[in-house]
């Protein structure tokens, strides 16, 4: 399965929408850089991520959350936080990586 990476906020670009449209059941989605903004439970994108979580894994890069003043308790429930080591493990664990640039 693919690990999709999304590095843009859903409030600025449509990258996350496009990713969620194409992503297949069982794949992984990693939010990094400004992409972490999508993970906010209070945001309008939370609903789409909650739906995605029903059959996909969603991860968020912790260092990018920290840098933007966001915390674990701010996130949609079910999203897993990973550090760069975790990012490397995800890349190794999935078969391919698709970056939604």
């Amino acid at each position: 399965m693919i690990l999709h990476t999304v590095n843009k906020s859903p409030y600025e670009r449509i990258n996350l929408d496009s990713c969620l449209r194409v992503a297949r059941i069982g794949c992984g989605i990693l939010l990094l850089e400004d992409g972490v903004i999508a993970a906010l439970a209070t945001g309008a994108a939370a609903q789409a991520l909650s739906v995605a979580l029903s059959d996909k894994s969603v991860y968020v890069l912790g260092p990018d959350l920290d840098a933007r003043g966001l915390r674990e308790c701010d996130l949609v429930i079910g999203i897993k936080i990973v550090d760069y080591d975790g990012f490397v493990d995800l890349v190794a664990g999935y078969d391919t990586v698709q970056a939604w640039l």
Binding site: M1, I2, V22, A23, R24, C27, T96, V97, Q98, A99, W100, L101
Partner: peptide, 12 residues
């Protein structure tokens, strides 16, 4: 999405 899943390398 299905076609993407069959790839080895994806360049964007």
């Amino acid at each position: 999405g299905d076609l993407m899943e069959q790839q080895d390398i994806i360049i964007s």
